[in-house]
């Protein structure tokens, strides 16, 4: 059983791709700071960096252009053995269930972002909230 104090980190950055590395590096630092995590810390840090990067790009590309002058919010929280990350956008939203699984045998340039999130995390959801749409990802830490 993973036992850790709760951690919550909220990051607010402009809707710009130049901040992807900043958010990714913060996510990696959060993983490296975990107490009593017995898994492969470097791999978890890389995966969290990756799924947050994918979700940020998704938020930037799906946001209402008028909202891009506002800040994007990213939330990373760990409670017990549950890792939860959320990326908010102010766009019209989309139906996650309609995002197709990419054909890995006939690869095309785009369409791997959601696939990577679904593969590397235990659960991915997308819903509307009062704070905007949120793409939320959960992973159980072992």
């Amino acid at each position: 059983m993973f036992d850790s104090a709760s951690i919550r980190v909220d990051i607010v950055v402009p809707y710009k791709k130049r901040y992807l590395s900043l958010v990714g590096n913060i996510a990696e630092a959060v993983v490296q700071a975990l107490d009593n995590y017995g898994g492969d810390r470097d791999t978890l840090a890389f995966h969290l960096n990756l799924v947050l990067t994918e979700a940020m790009v998704n938020a930037i590309e799906h946001s209402n252009p008028l909202a891009r002058d506002h800040a994007a919010k990213v939330s990373i929280s760990i409670e017990g053995d549950n890792l939860c990350v959320g990326v908010y956008d102010q766009g019209p939203g989309f139906d996650l269930d309609l995002v197709p699984t990419p054909d890995l045998e006939e690869p095309s340039e785009r369409g791997r972002g959601i696939f990577l999130m679904r593969t590397l995390m235990d659960a991915v959801s997308y819903r509307k909230t009062e704070a905007g749409n949120v793409l939320e990802m959960h992973k159980r830490l072992e």
């Binding site: 960096n49 990756l50 990067t53 790009v57 095309s108 340039e109 972002g113 696939f115």
Partner: peptide
């Protein structure tokens, strides 16, 4: 040390 889906797509294309 880090590549995302966009980077992978660029290698492919």
């Amino acid at each position: 040390r880090f590549i995302d889906s966009s980077g992978l797509g660029t290698l492919l294309n």
